[in-house]
Design a protein around this nucleic acid. Structure first.
Length: 198
DNA sequence: GCTAGGCAGGAACCCCTCCTCCCCT
């Protein structure tokens, strides 16, 4: 089981490019010793300071109205960094999507950053089923794990993060039971410096 | 499944380069 704390998180953005696009939603849930803490969550809309492309509204259900009046990304990332504390982050395809987005957003806002450890949950899926012969998208992973949540909205960070947390919990248990401790790479990404350490 | 960009990993070939695929919104 996990030794320390994990913060499972998910971003919704205006597109796929960390440099050209912006974060519009962040959601996270904490896991302690392998167990999800349902009451210990983080959520915020982010005002991207621009119109949300229609495709993204269609894809995520997030509208311009939703982000109107929301805090800007600098403010949300500072709060998120405080929430994360010393935990290790986990996101699906985080190494190539979520973490570069966090780093690029800090850079755009000229925020002082700290190094934050993170895992990519894709690696758990690769280890458990084998990289070839299986697809490893979140939908495919959830389907193979028989994780179904009736009242959860996919492509909304709040919904995706709950589903991902359940998937991580289950995958970790199953890998541990069948293959021993997961051999999952630990990376380091960026989040704003914590208050009081500047 | 459709747009966008980036990249890890494999192949071929000799250690860097090219190619292809994946996954995220």
């Amino acid at each position: 089981m996990f030794e320390g704390e994990l913060v499972i998180f998910d971003l919704e953005t205006t597109g796929l490019s960390p440099h050209a696009d912006d974060i519009i939603q962040i959601a996270a849930v904490r896991m302690v010793k392998g167990l999800i803490c349902p009451a210990d969550t983080f959520f915020s809309y982010v005002d991207p300071g621009r119109r949300i492309p229609p495709f993204i509204t269609q894809y995520t259900g997030i509208t311009n109205w939703d982000v109107q009046g929301a805090p800007d990304v600098g403010s949300v990332l500072r709060s998120f960094s405080e929430y994360v504390g010393n935990a290790t982050l986990v996101a699906h395809n985080g190494h190539r999507f979520d973490m570069p987005f966090l780093a690029a957003s800090c850079h755009k806002k000229s925020l002082s950053v700290r190094a934050v450890p993170y895992h990519d949950s894709l690696a758990l899926s690769w280890q458990f089923w084998g990289r070839r012969g299986f697809r490893h998208g979140l939908d495919q992973v959830l389907s193979r794990l028989n994780i179904v949540e009736a009242n959860v909205r996919r492509h909304d960070a709040r919904g995706d993060v709950i589903l991902l947390a359940k998937a991580v919990e289950k995958l970790w248990e199953q890998i541990l039971a069948t293959q021993g401790p997961p051999q999952i790479k630990l990376y380091h990404g960026s989040l704003p410096m914590l208050a009081g350490t500047l």
